[in-house]
Design a protein around this nucleic acid. Structure first.
Length: 926
DNA sequence: GCAAGGTC
């Protein structure tokens, strides 16, 4: 440590924000500092004496307000028309202090001139380090020989602050450089794409009716676009969803003790015939036998982790429907008034040095939760529990917690009351014991099918008493004894339909951003608000987001170019590079060069492919009158009146990829569309009217298919109807698919479209059998009742193996015999494992090995053929039935068994319960 | 007029 001969040195201390300057001054001076005004009315200067490592110091403590500087292009590049946007990848950039920060700069300059040392108390993260160097630049410019040191602290508590000042270090240049690189990349990419797309699109299209096009900015940013991408992607997922029917057997039992609702342990089946067979067997032998009654098991519901910014925003959105942006505004005001701690924090664990009980003590006076706080402090109550550690620590701020008691201030709005209440109740919940319950599960067997029912008795609510935002329901079921038998009160076969996931709500969006690393805890709400301000998305009353036409068109345009500029990957790569710079594995210059080079190439290519953006916009917007372009849109030939909106005609069209569809001319108001087979080479509307489809007239279309694209047996020429009567068309779509965008963009987990009647999944009440509206598939007039004609279509020769192993769940499948009118005596395999929905008719299994005959071991009834496990192959053979080999099952002798397919998609490599079509993340597919 | 990052 450098010292000057004997006398005190003057030390200028600078914090990132006024509150920290005041706290640090208070701690170091033990509350004896003097305050004077600086040039900025927010940034006071605190003075006190202190000794650093024995060196007497005259301390001056002041602050900035976040970044002091902004990055900007050199003058000549600032006007939008001053240069080609591509030039912005090389244009000189410089940091400057914006007008509203000039007074802070002046204070720093004045105080630095008087000082010998400069000690930097910025937050201990990359941005803080970067701000530190901004402060250094300003101060050194007026005082070249300043001695510069950095204080490292993780919390504004005495021990940390005293330790920090006695262990001053050098500022971390690498951290600051990582931020420099981030700033420069963000600016160059953001400005170039924003200028490009604004100038390209704004004047060409009538984007809004307010006549404000001239001032509209169609911005691009590496955070705002991925955020928009999440919204659009979910919207497309909903558009692409095709409802699929499934069946489940439900059972209930009403006794004097109450009602028990039993769930089928297979869950549900997508195959109607299988479900009916199992159901009919249950109905014919409906006696339920109680298989086991395990002892009640203790269950816990744990309190949440300590509150950080993202959780505060998510919960305020869920509980009070506040926008994240508004929540932060209210929280900031509560913080400024001293009622809650600093609201921008990633930290969700309390330091072991925090006085947790003192904060509870404060709240004991509150009329609503005071008595709970009091009980928390009573040791005999046993309600206290040290808070869990959420695993995040930004090393700068503690979790959000109450800092001052209030039972409501006169100037508080309802939102202030709500946010304060959330912070307090959340804190009290964190230091409470979890809720406890006893759960019992009863399992019954009806005709070989298993059902279960659960009851839950809440033993102690604990934290739920104070955390009114969460609940945990109790339910009571009658007591059963093992072996007990009863006849169910109801036993039904019920149909349901898969539903698309909901639009993203604000909490979902924040989670997506958090997971993908888009924005920081302090800026996420800004990015969301920006999408609304820019007119890229809208938010409904349930805080769910939809893209606007503009938002969807932009994402569609870039997507069609083949770029993932709207996906989070780019930001993730940039973040990764920033980390590399901050640990010294890459230099700032290196990262800037490679990243900007790639982005410039992408920019230039995007400009070449600008027609994709224009085409996407054309789908949603009229051409503006103030352009001289004369790209006319062909109206297409009318095929029929739109059977969805009944307001417009539907016309035959060909999209830019050469795919044909018949779409409503009222698009985008009406999205009714029928996509035609992918291999369609030519299509033209004829004057030939279909005699069976209505409401008429529905004109037939003359197709010419690509010979190479259609299966053998189909003619390249076909006169077809899109009204729903044309089986050939249906088959071709089933086999070859369509050119539908929704199909092309379908997420990997959704089933292919075979809906010839319309891909407009907003109208989801379509019978999946006849594709007509107005009835569910269970009531479909075209359908033969399953009990009369429920045989699967499998035509494979009889299988000679009686036992197969389910490769999905690893269990031995059981050979059973159907006992229903339609299928009496027919044998089938079913997997006994709970939750595994494997079912296969024994006579549909094709095994050419001709081994031992079936049935010889199956006993009189054939219900429970008990065999050795057949998995794993024989001798040196590998298990030919493993997934991926094309056959999922092996016989008892190790031979592969073919002919068993997934009920859902028909793929022989898996069964329905492992079908990727069901395995989507949204939890709404089954 | 453009980005995202600080913060009053």
């Amino acid at each position: 440590m450098s010292r000057r001969g004997g006398g005190p040195v003057t030390v200028l201390n600078v914090a990132e924000k006024p509150s920290v300057a005041k706290s640090v001054a208070g701690i170091l001076s033990r509350g004896t500092f003097r305050t004077r005004e600086g040039r900025s009315r927010y940034n006071k200067i605190f003075e006190f004496d202190y000794a650093i490592n024995g060196q007497p110091c005259r301390m001056l403590m002041t602050s900035v307000i976040g970044h002091l500087m902004e990055l900007e292009f050199a003058d000549r590049y600032r006007k939008w028309h001053s240069c080609d946007p591509a030039d912005l990848y090389q244009a000189p950039v410089m940091k400057h202090v914006p007008e509203d920060k000039k007074d802070i700069k002046k204070t720093l300059e004045e105080e630095a001139r008087k000082s010998d040392w400069l000690v930097l108390w910025l937050d201990c993260d990359r941005e803080g380090e970067n701000i530190a160097f901004e402060v250094v630049d300003v101060c050194r410019a007026v005082k070249h020989n300043l001695f510069i040191r950095r204080a490292h602290f993780s919390a504004l508590i005495d021990r940390d602050i005293h330790e920090a000042v006695q262990n001053l270090r050098d500022p971390n240049q690498l951290f600051a450089e990582a931020v420099d690189a981030r700033q420069e990349i963000d600016l160059r990419i953001g400005a170039s794409f924003t200028r490009f797309q604004t100038m390209l699109l704004r004047d060409r299209f009538a984007i809004d009716s307010t006549g404000e096009e001239r001032s509209r900015v169609i911005s691009y940013g590496p955070c705002q676009f991925p955020t928009l991408g999440f919204i659009v992607e979910r919207y497309w997922e909903i558009q692409a969803h095709e409802p699929e029917e499934f069946w489940t057997i439900n059972c209930s039992h009403q006794s004097e003790e109450g009602l028990a609702t039993f769930n089928w342990m297979r869950g549900h089946l997508f195959d109607y015939a299988s479900a009916v067979i199992l159901y009919e067997m249950c109905v014919e032998e409906p006696t339920a036998t109680v298989m086991n009654v395990p002892h009640p098991r203790e269950r816990f519901k744990y309190p949440p982790y300590p509150l950080n910014t993202i959780e505060l925003e998510k919960r305020a959105s869920r509980y009070f429907r506040l926008s994240s942006e508004h929540t932060m505004k209210v929280a900031e005001e509560l913080y400024q008034a001293g009622f809650i701690s600093y609201p921008r924090t990633e930290t969700d664990s309390f330091s072991s040095r925090t006085d947790l009980r003192a904060m509870v003590e404060e709240q004991t006076r509150h009329p609503a939760w005071g008595s709970y706080a009091q009980r928390l402090l009573e040791p005999e109550g046993g309600l206290w529990r040290n808070p869990a550690n959420g695993g995040h620590d930004d090393k700068a701020h503690p979790p959000i917690h109450p800092t001052k008691f209030s039972s409501g201030e006169s100037n508080w709005s309802r939102d202030h009351l709500n946010v304060y209440e959330l912070v307090v109740r959340h804190y009290l919940a964190c230091v409470s014991q979890p809720a406890v319950a006893a759960e019992t599960t009863v399992e019954i067997d009806i005709a070989g099918e298993r059902f279960s029912a659960s009851g839950r008795a809440i033993l102690a609510k604990n934290y739920l008493e104070v955390y009114r935002f969460e609940s945990w329901g109790g339910s009571v079921i009658p007591v059963y004894e093992k072996g007990q038998q009863f006849i169910p009160t109801t036993l039904t076969l019920d149909a349901a339909v898969t539903r698309p996931p909901p639009l993203l709500c604000e909490a979902d969006l924040l989670s997506c951003m958090d997971k993908a690393g888009i924005g920081t805890d302090a800026t996420m709400h800004d990015h969301i608000k920006k999408l609304l301000d820019r007119g890229y998305a809208t938010k409904d009353a349930n805080t769910r987001f939809s893209p606007t036409n503009l938002g969807e068109a932009l994402v569609m345009g870039y997507d069609d170019m083949g770029y993932e500029l709207w996906k989070p990957n780019l930001r993730a790569l940039m973040e990764h590079d920033m980390n590399e710079v901050s640990v010294g594995r890459k230099t700032k210059a290196e990262v800037l060069e490679t990243c900007l080079q790639q982005m410039k190439a992408c920019f230039l290519d995007a400009r070449v492919k600008k027609s994709k953006l224009l085409e996407a916009m054309t789908i949603f917007f009229e051409r503006s009158n103030n352009t001289d372009e004369s790209e006319s849109q062909t109206a297409g030939e009318v095929v029929r009146r739109c059977n969805l909106c009944n307001e417009s005609d539907m016309a035959l069209r060909k999209n830019r990829d050469g795919n044909f569809m018949v779409g409503c001319m009222n698009y985008p108001q009406c999205r009714n569309a029928v996509w035609l087979p992918g291999p369609t080479l030519e299509a033209s509307v004829t004057t030939n009217v279909c005699q069976s489809c209505g409401p008429g007239p529905v004109y037939k279309i003359l197709f010419k298919f690509r010979q190479i694209g259609i299966p053998p047996g189909f003619d390249v020429n076909h006169l077809g109807c899109v009204g729903g009567c044309d089986d050939i068309l249906k088959q071709l779509i089933d086999i070859c698919g369509t050119g539908s965008r929704s199909q092309a963009r379908r997420t990997p987990g959704t089933a292919p479209s075979n809906n010839i009647q319309g891909s407009n999944t907003r109208q989801s009440n379509v019978c999946i059998h006849c594709q007509q509206r107005g009835h569910a598939s269970t009531n479909c007039p075209s359908r033969v009742p399953a009990s009369q004609n429920s045989r699967p279509t499998a035509t494979n020769p009889r299988n000679d193996e009686s036992t197969v192993s389910c490769n999905t769940c690893g269990s031995q499948c059981v050979l059973r015999t159907a006992n229903t009118e339609a299928n009496r005596g027919r044998q089938f395999f079913s997997c006994p494992t709970q939750g595994c929905s494997f079912f296969a008719w024994e006579d549909s299994i094709n095994n050419s090995s001709g081994n031992a005959t079936t049935g010889s071991n199956s006993g009189g009834s054939g219900r429970r053929g008990s065999r050795g496990r057949g998995r794993g192959g024989r001798g040196g053979q590998s298990s030919g039935g493993r997934r991926g080999s094309g056959t999922s099952f092996v016989s008892a002798t190790g031979e592969p068994v073919s002919g068993i397919r997934c009920f859902s998609c028909g793929d022989p490599s898996h069964f329905a319960n492992a079908c990727p079509n069901r395995n989507t993340s949204n939890g709404n597919y089954f």
